[in-house]
Write a protein that binds this DNA or RNA. Sequence first.
DNA 1: ATGGCTACGATCCGTAGA
Length: 255
Amino acid sequence: MRIATWNVNSLNVRLQHVLDWLATADVDALCLQELKLPAEKYPFDTLREAGYESAVNGQKTYNGVAIVSRLPMQDIQADIPDYADEQRRVIAATIAGVRIVCAYFPNGQSLESDKYRYKLDWLDAMNGYIGRLLAQHERLALLGDYNIAPEDRDVHDPAAWEGQVLVSPKERAAWSTLIGQGMVDCFRLFEQPEKTFSWWDYRMLGFRRNAGLRIDHILASSALAGRCQACVVDRAPRKLDKPSDHAPVVADFSV
DNA sequence: ATGGCTACGATCCGTAGA
């Protein structure tokens, strides 16, 4: 089973990139974030013609997530149960016996912002949700744009970013709580090139300078992580004309 | 120099992203 995550920064703008990527990437399921469209405007038919069904939690203008899968999806669940949130950031489904959670974590804007307070609260809720899922599903994966760079080696210039949102101690503590519950960062199971990132700022020639962050992740329960055979960032779509600022992350599992 | 893009929905600028 091969699964991936990609923040597409508007599915309207990036639909052709997604279709082109699906035609070559050979993934069974792809978790999408930042659709920026409501479910009524989701291109279900176009993706179905490409061989993929969709589970969608849409929102106009902001946020919005989907799982597209060429394998059957069961028990589709939108949002974090029992967590009141206007923002459509989470959708889950079971695919080939693996519980897949697709999430667009809040950005936080700045440490002084109300959005940062919201992010920390949301991270608490996500940790609770993952804890409950771990008790129910031996094979669990959480894929998405976490908006957290877990370690300094995931940051192109740690000194410049120190104390900023995406790397702050409280955000990294929430990441550590996920890991402490038993979730495993599939990317770090393998030897990786130095300075591998998944997001690069549109400004300042960020991609050309490789001035990026690794903030898109695939975490797996220990039983599933034990079956992980590869995990890589695919930089190719970031080189296209009018790219998303994020690149896909892909993982293979022997399930 | 704390900016520099990009997308969106409102107009011809503000909000948001990371």
